[in-house]
Design a protein around this nucleic acid. Sequence first.
DNA 1: CGGAAGCTAGTCAAGTTTGACTAGCGCTCG
DNA 2: CGAGCGCTAGTCAAACTTGACTAGCTTCCG
Lengths: 200, 200
Amino acid sequence: MSATRLLVLGAVRTRGEAHGYQVRQDLLLWAADQWANVKPGSIYHALKKLAADHLLEEVTTQESELGPDRVVYRITQQGEGEFFFLLNKALSDPETGPAMFNAALPFITTLDRGNLIFLLKSRIQHTKAGADSTRLLIDNTVAPENGQPGKPPHVREMFTYWLVTIQAEVRWLEDLVARLEAGEYVFADDSPAAFGNPPH
Amino acid sequence: MSATRLLVLGAVRTRGEAHGYQVRQDLLLWAADQWANVKPGSIYHALKKLAADHLLEEVTTQESELGPDRVVYRITQQGEGEFFFLLNKALSDPETGPAMFNAALPFITTLDRGNLIFLLKSRIQHTKAGADSTRLLIDNTVAPENGQPGKPPHVREMFTYWLVTIQAEVRWLEDLVARLEAGEYVFADDSPAAFGNPPH
DNA sequence: CGGAAGCTAGTCAAGTTTGACTAGCGCTCG
DNA sequence: CGAGCGCTAGTCAAACTTGACTAGCTTCCG
């Protein structure tokens, strides 16, 4: 349910083996601190939690000669399962929110192209459905007859704001799908060396 | 810095006096649970924290005949200051994020019309500036020459996604400003009974 | 009438996030 | 050469969030 979880799990998976600081640097590189909350503390916490849940395993505690000790992690079988589960959900279900979607983007090329397109189309459908029900809410937002604070006018503004951003998202998604269908990017079924797939 | 803080502070202020459950109901009515995180626990925590910071004061602990005891709060002088500070910031500074902006919307009519328009125009400026620098980032996102994981292609997608949503936001903001300039809504300087202003 | 459901009002422990802090090492520059 | 800066790697307490739980009262419905 957390964007950090997916990001950290995926970052370790991509490297094959990684310690906390490497994950931290990778996430920084993909600007994850901007839109998700990946402060240092969260990353180390996530690593420990994932290890406790047997989704990651501790490989070694290296005595690095340069700076303090490092704990190296690797993804487990269960972790693989969880990773793809989270990835699918984050991509297809708009209710998981934009943070989750952004967290999923780094790993899209680990999927097969057709698969990803399917997931994105599913997201588009659900998003459009959400937009429709928001439109209904806008139409039904009437001023209350009683004097109580009631449902005030600004609620309508919130809904239109919400609607405008979803519409923009849908257009962007449809454009992305079109580009993917036209062959953009290298996916897992195009080449095993697609970005994001673990080495060796 | 937190949307809950602004929402709870503003909700109490709007009522004049309120206990936790009333705040909870108001926020629910404003659909605040949707986009901000206003689970019951957070509200009661926020109330206690705001009271500890002397932004709210405890009025009475009423023995209500209907259900358990209630603690009634009222905003203090300092709270008034903090409220308008947070409100201004949430409206004018896009870096505080959409959650903060949504949390501010319920209270816009407590401002003077010209003041709000000024704040929103400021937001538009900053948002546009952000879009420009994002555009630069997109242009500079080149594939890395070295073999390292590097800055991968999806980062570009994230930026375009980001760009599309902020563009939608700007258009919406400009539309809102136009409507405000045309006289929509009743503001604090139109009538003291504008929505969101405390009673008596 | 009785009891199931629902509302009012709030508490609490467990989990998560924050961001300031430690501490060693290398590099640079006057 | 040594003082200061910045990087590597991570810890930690304090703050915040979550959502399940309590407990009394009212209302509905057969």
